[in-house]
């Protein structure tokens, strides 16, 4: 490892800390663009808050630039993704969550919840205790259906299971 690499490794990675302010600046500019044509009285509040937000973000960018110049920090995103060994699991969980939302209007709450819980727990647990996970997922999904749909009469997305139960009882 070269001296410059060792030097880089000692610096605190703060690139991830710039994501929120960057999003804030882009969103504020977009928001202010959408109110260009409305009367001033309707603009004033957003102008006030949006301007302060952009100013605060610029202050953070300047502070970061000064720290970079002094060699105290780096623009790495280690702070955001560490510990890196969990990144694959986290991405799988994110993918399963998107799939859950996508499927729930068709399969309904109970079946989708069962599948999501079983798959997510199996992946996170490294494929161990499959029988226990299947039983736990079934109990939780049916318990949720009994509590929310039957007891509270909440209108959760209905699928084959909910329709079958409705016809039976």
């Amino acid at each position: 490892m070269t001296d410059s690499q060792q030097e880089h490794g000692r610096r605190k990675p703060i690139g991830g800390e710039l994501i929120i302010p960057a999003v804030a600046v882009v969103f504020s500019i977009y928001y202010l663009w959408t109110i260009v044509d409305v009367p001033f009285t309707a603009q004033a509040s957003a102008l006030f808050v949006g301007t302060i937000l952009i100013f605060l973000c610029l202050a953070l960018f300047v502070r970061t630039a000064l720290a970079l110049r002094r060699g105290e920090v780096s623009l790495g995103i280690g702070g955001l993704i560490e510990p890196t060994s969990f990144v694959p699991r986290r991405l799988v969980l994110l993918g399963l969550t998107v799939a859950y939302i996508f499927v729930v209007p068709w399969l309904g709450f109970t079946l989708t919840t069962f599948l999501f819980l079983a798959l997510a727990m199996a992946v996170l647990n490294g494929g161990r205790s499959k029988g226990f996970i299947a039983a736990l997922s079934a109990v939780l999904a049916i318990g949720g259906w009994l509590l929310f749909v039957v007891a509270f009469e909440t209108r959760f997305p209905a699928g084959p299971f909910e329709m079958l139960m409705q016809r039976m009882f």
Partner: peptide
């Protein structure tokens, strides 16, 4: 974690 996600999403 999966229990939190599924039950709070609905």
């Amino acid at each position: 974690a999966p229990i939190i996600i599924s039950f709070t999403l609905v």
